[in-house]
């Protein structure tokens, strides 16, 4: 029933994305060799977030699916974030 937007993703898209992901991995490894203090954590997680966006949108084809899936995924990620945040509220101020 959703066949009209159900297009076949070409092989090369995956190869481009794969190349991008590998480059990001290497960047992430290189960056941590430079001493940036707490920024290191931030940058490493930021790059991981960018990588996972690619995986989610292209490999897991969220980009081509019903919007509902994207909303749910974002909600779940936010949920995990909020749970970590609330738990840390205890530890940060103890």
């Amino acid at each position: 029933m959703e066949h009209e937007k159900d297009h076949i993703i070409p092989y090369r898209t995956f190869l481009y994305v794969l190349a991008g992901l590998i480059v990001l991995t290497l960047i992430s490894v290189t960056v941590t060799k430079i001493h940036l203090g707490t920024l290191t954590v931030f940058i490493a997680l930021l790059i991981a977030a960018v990588k996972s966006t690619f995986v989610l949108r292209i490999f897991m084809h969220l980009k081509f699916e019903n919007r509902m899936f994207t909303i749910m995924v974002i909600a779940v990620i936010l949920l995990i974030g909020v749970v970590i945040f609330i738990t840390l509220l205890d530890y940060l101020y103890r």
Binding site: T25, S28, V29, T32, T40, V41, A44, L45, I47, A48, K51, S52, V55, L56, F59, M60
Partner: peptide, 19 residues
């Protein structure tokens, strides 16, 4: 399989890179 990959994308920096 992508999810397993996705989790590794976070495990890798958290254990190997955050030095």
């Amino acid at each position: 399989w992508h999810l397993v990959d996705l989790i590794w994308i976070f495990l890798f920096p958290l254990f190997y890179l955050i030095t």
